[in-house]
């Protein structure tokens, strides 16, 4: 099969991944039968894996490994989740392939889960740590959207810093029905607990303001 990542992209991704601190494990859930972008998502992980020896990849099937899928709250395929060095899931999830511009939020999630410092000021970190409700953040994106990786990375930072928060990138073109259900016509669109919405690549304070309303 033709490679997804060309020589240039491979080199750049390798460079970025040099910032990894500890090992991470990525689990990719796909399913049998018709599954748009499942094959490519698996292939992407297979091409990224050899670029750093701190990366481990597991492939699971949404139906055959139902318990595992349930454990990580995975219902759609393809979905990637990333575990830290202690195999802990912190709520960082990608539903659909993180290609195009979104490769950047994918790389940033790998670095974060590997233990690389997130650049957020102490006061904001304190606020994030104090979130005591279950928060589900969905970030709808398209692969041609340059403003989207920023929004995904912000949501993932919230998830990383607080166990009550789970943040999922959703690639809207593959999951167009879901996008229509959430009335997405512009990205990034961020939906918090199916109730509050943020439009655009906003600062983390904008997320905290919506989360406070919950």
């Amino acid at each position: 099969m033709a490679k997804l990542l060309n020589e240039d992209a491979t080199k750049q991704i390798k460079e970025v991944l040099q910032g990894m601190v500890n090992k991470v494990t990525m689990i990719v859930f796909t399913k049998k039968g018709k599954c748009n972008t499942c094959k490519e998502t698996k292939q992407l992980l297979q091409e990224v894996k050899p670029l750093n020896d701190k990366i481990n990849v597991l492939e699971k099937d949404l139906e055959d490994d139902l318990d595992e899928a349930k454990k990580y709250n995975v219902t759609l395929a393809p979905t990637i989740i990333i575990l830290d060095k202690d195999d802990k899931y912190q709520g960082l999830k990608f539903t659909g392939i993180p290609a195009g511009h979104e490769i950047n939020s994918f790389l940033s999630a790998i670095l974060t889960m590997s233990g690389k410092n997130i650049e957020i000021d102490d006061k904001t970190i304190e606020k994030i740590k104090n979130i005591d409700k279950a928060v589900d953040i969905k970030v709808f994106i398209t692969l041609s959207c340059p403003h989207c990786p920023g929004a995904v990375a912000t949501s993932h930072a919230l998830a990383y810093l607080n166990d009550n928060v789970e943040a999922t990138m959703i690639e809207a073109q593959t999951f167009m029905d879901l996008a229509r259900e959430y009335k997405v016509s512009g990205v990034p669109k961020i939906v918090i607990n199916d109730k509050y919405e943020i439009v655009g690549n906003q600062p983390i304070d904008a997320y905290l303001k919506e989360i406070e309303k919950l």
Binding site: S144, A179, V184
Partner: peptide, 18 residues
């Protein structure tokens, strides 16, 4: 209707107008 049919970025949002 911001983001409910209105967009300011064609490259980002064209797929929603399929």
């Amino acid at each position: 209707f911001a983001n409910k049919g209105i967009t300011y970025c064609a490259t980002c949002d064209a797929p929603f107008f399929k």
